[in-house]
Design a protein around this nucleic acid. Structure first.
Length: 479
RNA sequence: GGUCGCGUCGUCUAGAGGCCUAGGACACAUGGUUUUCAUCCAUGCAAUCGCGGGUUCGAAUCCCGCCGCGACUACCA
């Protein structure tokens, strides 16, 4: 069965970690079944509308590689894909409901409704609008809300994630279909649109589970076939048990892109937060996800968001891209993540640096901190040399003479490459009788003054003979 | 208050009556790889399966009760 799915966000801001999954799963299902994913912008709340939010959403989806088959930009047979532009359509459907006696124009002022609500909560009774239905609803005219006229009864349905569901008549109410401002509510608009657009699977957060019976009643009154319902559990904030939201500092998905997380890793991590294929595999390409995804294996409890694991996975992906597609492919993704001084060097040099350091990266932005000494001579700090834990036991005079031996030896290296350098370093070890920890630490620190660096011979190779010797001499002079 | 949902290592999870003295991954700890290290490898730490009953020769898995947590209860989505 070809699944027609949709991602239907409200343009109220950026897409964050807590809500992208409702785009990922519909995408995977649509692709897996050879169906379609629709992007629909649910902009019926004019108060919360944020200028530019639609572009933010599109940008996020594109970055993750979740291209939509119908929607803004790409168009499609069900245009328009902005609910605000479909306003008339909802009204037509609502009027049909009025005509069939299943909806009514509601003249009750909101103050009155608030009063009913207060009375109920004072009496500790659940508030149901249907108990306060106006006796003789007037003819509808603009400026008046339209309410569904519900017929309370029991409902049974199947949720693809939560299983078989059952509720009593007490959950059904006369929900608002069309608001006073003429825009439809989410509750009504999504039903009309899903039907018009042929959506087969409605995937959304579990928060809609409790309103499902009302949607079921609407499908019935409208003579619509129920789509398959899929409730997605929440992603929980790192602390507490609340769902992750902007208030908990949920970062936008694209913020991670700017921080050097690569799209494959982000998609992989998010898809596997609350879903797994039952094997011990951790790393999945988009294609593998499409192939292996299944609704039945979506977790039904909330999953806590863990940034540390995302970064671990990102490191895995960085290595994977380099190992399978080559350094060049990885390099293409590092543009913008290098320290500023790197711009003074040719691209080939940066590629070389990347090739020896990529397997230490957790995020691409680590490049900024980890590679500066490849592009600019570090400031000489003698304390860092003599205070080093492997060099502490040596006197300054010893260090100085050792440094001179090193300089002489390296000056003699004719072919400056990783292999020859390793040979020279080994010979130095034998000639000086020093332990690797002592000799190599000294060279490494004198040349980089960094917390860590790649293998010494590789580092020196990339740096080149002139730079290496100049830096060693600078330290020798300073002691 | 009402309705619905959820409950396995700190975290993500495997688990569909015996393969479970509960497996994998992250994190953490220790050791190894001729320096450092955030890589890599190995080892270890870590869940009496929310609690209490029951069914069964046998239960994380089935049943009942309880507790905890969450969502919804908007002219927001």
């Amino acid at each position: 069965m070809k699944a027609i799915t949709r991602f239907a966000p409200s343009p109220t801001g950026y897409i964050h970690i807590g809500n992208v999954r409702s785009a990922i799963y519909p995408y995977l299902l649509a692709k897996q079944t050879g169906g379609k994913m629709i992007l629909r912008i649910e902009d019926t709340d004019r108060e919360r509308y944020v200028e530019g939010a639609t572009e933010l959403i599109e940008d996020t989806l594109k970055w993750l590689g979740l291209d939509w088959d119908e929607g803004p930009i790409v168009g499609g047979p069900n245009e328009p894909y902005f609910q605000s532009e479909r306003k008339e359509l909802y009204l037509e459907w609502a009027k049909k409901l009025i005509a069939s006696g299943r909806a009514y124009a509601d003249p009750t002022p909101s103050e009155k409704i608030d009063e009913y609500r207060r009375e109920c909560s004072a009496a500790k009774k659940p508030f149901l609008y249907r108990d306060h239905r106006p006796e003789n609803p007037p003819e509808w005219e603009p400026g008046m809300p339209i309410r569904f006229l519900t017929v309370p009864k029991e409902y049974e349905w199947h949720d693809e994630v939560m299983g078989d569901m059952h509720t009593g008549p007490e959950v059904l109410d006369d929900i608002i279909l069309i608001k006073r401002d003429g825009y439809p509510t989410y509750n009504f608009a999504h039903i009309v649109d899903d039907a018009e657009m042929g959506v087969t699977h409605v995937m959304r957060g579990v928060e809609y589970l409790s309103s499902t019976p009302n949607y079921l009643a609407l499908y019935e009154a409208l003579g619509l076939e129920r789509p398959k319902l899929v409730s997605l559990p929440h992603i929980l904030a790192p602390s507490g048990n609340k769902k992750l939201g902007k208030r908990d500092g949920a970062k936008s998905v694209t913020e991670y892109r700017d921080d050097g997380v690569i799209a494959e890793a982000m998609l992989n991590y998010l898809a596997c937060l609350g879903w797994n294929d039952g094997t011990e595999q951790e790393l999945y390409t988009k294609e593998e996800l499409i192939e292996k995804f299944s609704l039945a294996r979506i977790q039904n409890s909330g999953a806590r968001y863990d940034e540390t694991k995302l970064f671990w996975m990102n490191g895995q992906w960085i290595r994977r891209i380099c190992d399978t597609q080559g350094v060049r492919a990885l390099y293409d993704r590092t543009i913008g993540f290098w320290p500023e001084v790197a711009a003074n060097y040719p691209e080939d040099y940066r590629v070389k640096v990347l090739s020896i350091i990529y397997d230490r990266l957790k995020t691409l932005s680590d490049l900024r901190e980890m590679t500066t000494y490849f592009f600019v001579d570090p400031a000489v700090e003698i304390d860092a040399v003599v205070g080093n834990k492997f060099l502490k036991k040596m006197s300054e005079a010893e260090i100085e003479s050792l440094l001179k031996v090193v300089i002489r030896k390296l000056s003699d290296v004719q072919e400056w490459n990783a292999n020859k350098l390793q040979e020279a370093l080994n010979e130095l070890l034998a000639e000086t009788g020093k332990k690797p920890a002592e000799l190599f630490s000294l060279i490494r620190i004198a040349v980089t003054f960094a917390a860590f660096s790649p293998a010494l011979n590789l580092t020196l190779d990339v740096l080149g003979k002139d730079v290496t010797l100049a830096r060693l001499n600078a330290v020798a002079r300073a002691i």
